[in-house]
């Protein structure tokens, strides 16, 4: 993209999230939305992108991209085992435990 000396791109068209994009993301997220909700989402998601677009309008020359708001690095843990949960506790919230495992609907069925 062409960028001027101040690091600004050409004037931007406000991005609009359309119905199709909402439905696509809803499908990826396994969400079922009714028509009204699709409209609401399209508006709210577009609003978020508008906000991001306002940030793009700032002079960001020399500003490092931020991946985190906390200025910490290397928060690590020694490789020492701890006591895991008893399986009964791990499975306590599972609706259909079976043979010590979580039983779930077949993901193959979900794909169809």
């Amino acid at each position: 993209m062409a960028v001027d000396a101040a690091g600004r791109g050409p004037p931007r068209i406000v991005p609009v999230i359309d119905r199709e994009q909402v439905l696509h993301v809803a499908r990826l997220s396994r969400l079922r939305l009714d028509d009204d909700e699709v409209e609401t989402m399209a508006g709210e998601l577009s609003g978020i992108l508008e906000h991001v677009d306002r940030i793009r309008g700032l002079d960001l020359e020399g500003v490092e991209p931020t991946s985190h708001v906390v200025h910490l690095e290397n928060v690590l843990r020694a490789d020492v085992p701890w006591q895991s949960m008893p399986p009964a506790v791990a499975l306590a919230a599972a609706p259909e435990p079976f043979d010590g495992a979580f039983r779930v609907p077949s993901p193959q069925a979900d794909a169809d």
Partner: peptide, 30 residues
């Protein structure tokens, strides 16, 4: 900090982090 294993009974090496319970924080293994 759950131990690695191979061939143990199912779900004996789990905790709120590796089961993704709400409100937990992962910490990388050095």
């Amino acid at each position: 900090g759950c131990e690695l294993s191979f061939g143990d009974d199912p779900n004996v090496h789990t905790c709120p982090i590796c089961l993704a319970h709400p409100g937990v924080l992962p910490v990388p293994n050095e």
